[in-house]
Every structure is written in C-alpha cells, then in structure tokens.
Simulated assay, not measured.
Amino acid sequence: MLIDTHSHFDAGEFDADRPAAYARARAAGVGQQVVPAVSYAGWPNLKAVVARYAGLHAAYGLHPCYLAEHRPEHLAALKQWIERERPVAVGECGLDLYIESLDPALQEQFFLAQLRLARDYELPVIVHARRAVDQVLKCIRRIGSLRGVVHSYAGSLDQARRLRQLGFLVSLGGPLAYPRAERLHRLARELPLDGLLLETDAPDQPGPAHAGQRNEPAYLPEVLAELARLRGGDPAEIATATHANACRLFALPAIPQP
C-alpha cells in the first residue's frame, strides 16, 4: 500500500465527490494520506475530514501563501491544537519567494515559530519551499533538532543532500513526469531511496497525463511508475522503501486501517 505524504484531501475541490475520490485512491493502492493544513480557518474542516476516512492523518500549520490570513494568535492556537489533536506533523509551513506580494520577513517569522513548535513537540515538519530552499536551510539550522520533508521538491541535488544531512527528506509528485523537468529527473536518479517520499499535492500539481484537471491521490501510482522508470528500478521495491520512509518520518502504522 502506498502513502500519499502530501494531499489536501480536505480542499473544497473534493466536496462534490470526496467518498468516490477516496474509494479510487484505495482501489489504486493508496492506503494512507498525510493531509496538511494551510490556514487556521481550515483546521476544523480538516479535522472532520480526517476523522471520517480511515488512513488519513492530519498535520496542522500555517502555509506561507495564506500569509494575509495569519495572525499571531494563530500560533498560540496551533500549540493548543498540537497538544489536543496529536497530529503527525506541523505544516504545511515554509517560505515562498516566488509570489512577490508575500512579505519575506513576515513569512520567516511564522515559519520560525512553527519550527520551534515542531522541535518542542518532537514532530516532523512539512515544508513548502518555492524558490527558497537556501533560506529554508538557514531557518532549519537556526532552530536545530528538527526533521521533516520539503514537499514537491524543486531544488538542486546539492540542496537535497544538505537537507538530508539535517534530517529532512524530499518528496516528489506529478511534476516529475514532465519531460522538461531535467533537474528533477537527475535528482530522482541519484538521491538514495532513504531520502525520498511520494506525494500528489492533490488537488494541485497533476502530472502530464492529467494536465489541466484536478489531481487526486489515486494518481500516486503514476508518480511511483515514473520514479521507477527514471531509476531503472523495481516499482515494488521503490514502493516498499518510500512506504517505510513515510512510516518512519510520520510514525504511521505500517498497515493502514481497513
């Protein structure tokens, strides 16, 4: 059974057919999903969705792209949610230097605060790092004693190796299958398997087979197939390795609930 380590299954895009999308994922062999939050307002709905479907695991955090919605008091609330809800991770959090309207200094304040919470509660961090991997590395070093994953990784092989030295894995999804993603292809071939996770980032970032459509956790086997093709490896062995990586990082059960 595969684990989708980054799925926004609580998103409104799934409201019309969430049970059917869940069934498709299970039929495709996706037995578990890690569902990270993006803003304080969405935490209650995420909690409800995760409680409704076996094999879904919540992470709570404040995404940098929703910076305009975040308030300092949401950090205090996050601490309470961590203590009460026992999520598998803190996140999604991080830095986004692609969107120019997002204040980098304010982003960093929220990111560092969430890294401190992850350290204090000994939880992994789910990190968004768009055009910001070096800055994310600096923040991780500044706080220390952290572990986690940089999702939908788009940085360099060298940066990925430096992240691994700090206890962070990288996660690959639909963009891996695009022919022009040469840097991702090299990374997929050369990084040791113990540093990799699989994700969809549903409903976003579909692979080329579903370009322009809603992404789904059911498409995760396509990411696995592309990674196996690039590495020239056995998909079953890669599935086993990435499954073990996810279970270890997020303290997930090796066998999902029926």
Rank of each mutant, 00 (worst) to 15 (best):
R186H: 09
R180T: 13
L67S: 10
V88N: 06
L169D: 09
A54Y: 00
D103S: 02
H6T: 02
P104C: 02
P72D: 14
E182H: 15
P192Q: 10
I140D: 09
L102C: 04
Q213K: 15
L191T: 11
I238D: 07
E237G: 01
V127Y: 04
A48S: 10
L220P: 11
E199G: 11
R141H: 04
S152Q: 01
A202R: 13
L227N: 05
G173K: 05
H185L: 06
R119Y: 04
K47R: 15
R24G: 06
V50K: 03
A76N: 11
E69T: 08
P36M: 03
Q109G: 13
A241T: 12
P179A: 08
E237H: 03
A225L: 02
P256K: 06
L172Q: 08
P64A: 13
T200C: 10
R131W: 04
V38N: 09
A41Q: 13
H151V: 00
V150G: 01
R189C: 00
P36S: 08
G155W: 10
L62Y: 10
R186I: 03
Y121N: 08
A28K: 07
R130H: 09
V127R: 01
L166G: 02
A246R: 12
G42H: 06
L2A: 00
F250P: 06
H243V: 10
L220Q: 05
R116Q: 14
A209N: 07
A202Q: 10
A48H: 04
Y219M: 05
L249D: 09
L163Y: 12
G207A: 11
E122C: 12
A160S: 07
V88A: 08
E13G: 01
V38D: 01
R147G: 00
L187F: 03
Y219N: 15
A68E: 15
P256Y: 06
R18N: 08
P19Q: 07
F250V: 00
G232R: 06
L193F: 09
S39V: 14
G195N: 12
R86Y: 11
A41Y: 00
A37M: 01
R52F: 00
A89Q: 07
P104H: 08
V35M: 13
Q114H: 11
L184I: 11
R131F: 00
A202W: 00
C247P: 07
Y53M: 04
A21S: 14
Y219I: 12
A25Y: 10
A41L: 09
A27N: 03
A254Q: 14
D234G: 02
I143L: 11
C93E: 02
L78C: 05
L187I: 15
Y66T: 04
H151C: 06
L123Y: 07
P19H: 11
L112I: 15
R130L: 06
D120R: 14
P175S: 04
A211G: 10
G61P: 07
S7W: 02
T5Y: 11
Y40V: 01
A154N: 14
L172F: 04
A20V: 03
A241S: 12
G155V: 00
A51W: 01
A51T: 00
L46T: 09
A20S: 13
R130G: 10
G42N: 13
E73V: 12
